[in-house]
């Protein structure tokens, strides 16, 4: 098993970590005051930019540009607050299309682009782990290599191909692109998890006469839930947060996603400028909720040593 990273998707049966004893001032709970204060300062510094945007998103236009966000933060009762930035940007065309529509477009893009590759990748991972075939290892090594190849290599021909098929600007174009681009990582994560599953279980299923198809559905899929969840979170965040693929294959128009709409709003210098913070929060709220709720799986996926090109 991987020697580099311990709690990864590759080690489903993780042995309990031996807790470090706090001796000589390095164990848990041994932090000195300078360490605590230092970390506190760092955490606060890390959150300041996001806090500033949150404050500004609720300030009326004239106040946003009459003083910095900290003025309202330190004097909350002497400042006026409003939710009109949110209501305006959600319903008006300031960002090209209403942010509410862009938000729904993001969901429309991200959900199928997350769910569909999982099954395809799971079948492939099963084949790479539990079936013997000629060329298997070579094909897998190619997939491992492709993990680091930038998606940009595919853009020029795909744009040409899509315009020939009239697919540019359609959801299908982005779905298929994300399925293709996400596939190496999906196969890699799922295979590395499956190869850590106890082989005895699979062997006994085989002896009992279960076909590969049955073994896959009844045994491997249920046992692989943690890895399936990690990949799902990864892919969802990746697709939701993506700007480049959406810009190239979906562009601006009725199908614009939230990141592209937010980017379009950045250029505003006059009216609409006060809407940027609100639009920002509308764009990042879903990933933040997903992340906070499913942090455990997200970390598990990361520590599997996977990288995405």
């Amino acid at each position: 098993m991987t020697t580099t990273i311990q709690p990864g998707t590759g080690t489903p049966a993780e042995e309990p970590q031996i807790l470090k004893q706090s001796k000589m001032g390095t164990g848990a709970g041994s932090a000195t005051w300078p360490v605590r204060v230092g970390l506190l300062v760092l955490c606060v510094a890390w959150m300041i930019p996001a806090l500033g945007m949150l404050v500004n998103s609720f300030r009326p236009r004239d106040e946003q540009f009459a003083s910095g966000w900290w003025t309202a933060f330190f004097n909350p009762f002497g400042s006026s607050w409003t939710i009109s930035n949110y209501t305006t940007v959600l319903t008006s065309d300031s960002a090209g299309i209403p942010m509410s529509q862009a938000f729904i477009n993001s969901l429309i893009v991200a959900l199928p682009a997350t769910v569909i590759p999982i099954l395809i990748a799971a079948f492939a991972a099963y084949s790479f782990t539990f079936m013997q075939w000629k060329g298997r290892d070579v094909v897998f090594v190619i997939i491992v290599g492709l993990l680091v190849v930038p998606n940009q290599v595919a853009f020029v021909p795909l744009v040409k191909l899509y315009s020939g098929l009239g697919l540019n600007g359609t959801f299908i174009a982005v779905w298929l692109a994300h399925i293709g681009f996400g596939m190496p990582l999906a196969v890699y994560i799922l295979r590395s998890y499956m190869s850590g599953l106890p082989t005895a279980v699979i062997e006994s299923a085989k002896i009992d006469g279960a076909s590969h198809f049955t073994t896959f559905w009844r045994l491997i899929m249920p046992m692989s839930t943690p890895a399936l969840a990690s990949f799902a979170i990864f892919q969802f965040l990746w697709v939701w947060n993506d700007l480049l693929v959406a810009l190239i294959f979906l562009g601006r128009g009725d199908n614009t996603v939230a990141t592209v709409a937010l980017q379009g709003l950045q250029g505003q210098t006059g009216a609409g400028r006060e809407l940027i913070p609100a639009a920002g929060y509308i764009t990042i709220i879903v990933p933040i909720i997903v992340f906070l709720a499913l942090q455990r799986y997200f970390i598990r996926g990361m520590t599997s040593g996977a990288v995405k090109g």
């Binding site: 760092l42 980017q263 950045q266 639009a279 920002g280 992340f291």
Partner: peptide, 21 residues
């Protein structure tokens, strides 16, 4: 969690956030 949270945010979102700085 505090240090890790920005990882979930898109680069577009992050760039927007850093306007406050």
């Amino acid at each position: 969690t505090f240090i890790f949270l920005p990882m979930a945010i898109s680069m577009v979102g992050a760039a927007t956030i850093w306007r406050t700085i």
